[in-house]
Amino acid sequence: MILKLIRKEILIRKKFLLSVVFYGLIAILASILGGPRLIEVVYIFSIIVFTYFFITTGAEIESKKNTGVIFASLPLRKREIVTAKYITAALLPLYSLLIMTVLGFAFTTLWAGIKFIGLNDSLIALLSTWFFLGLALPIIFIFSSTTARVINYIILFTIMFGPFERYIRATQPLDWEPILWFLAVFVFLLLSWLFSVWVYQKQDL
């Protein structure tokens, strides 16, 4: 059931998922024009921003016709509906990472002036995006899509330009314990998921 729901999450955003390649291209080109400061963060920023757009467009598509009503009427548990949204959203940074790696590879082979996405970049991108999802998804379940978009926009920018960015710059090269961080983010996502399931089960659609 969850797999079928994930398939649905992907199907309704087919266009967006394809256009990620195009957006990635634009992001890299813009960072080249924007200078070394932007090149430094382009991969991390692209991945988290794509994820933000992924969950917001999804919420908008679903709230426009209140499609939640249909899925809540199908032989599905509410828990499964929430879980599928979490899994799809959590897969998105991996997908974006893949796209950005391929694009980055293409660019660095063509032109040496740009740095390739490093392991450190990848890990930080994944961690910060998953952390972002842990905050953003419950907000999507609680608020209307327009309100949720604004709140999540603020969270997104706080993560991008707040402590995380400073942290990214300060800790290069790698001198931290990624496993522990992943564990912490995983626990955070789990709690966030439990909370969203609880909210969704109590909710009037």
Binding site: I61, K65, N66, T67, S73
Partner: peptide, 13 residues
């Protein structure tokens, strides 16, 4: 089997 009074389908499909 349910039929609602409003369109709740994804309308760009």
């Amino acid at each position: 089997g349910f039929v609602y009074d409003q369109n709740h389908f994804y309308d760009n499909l």
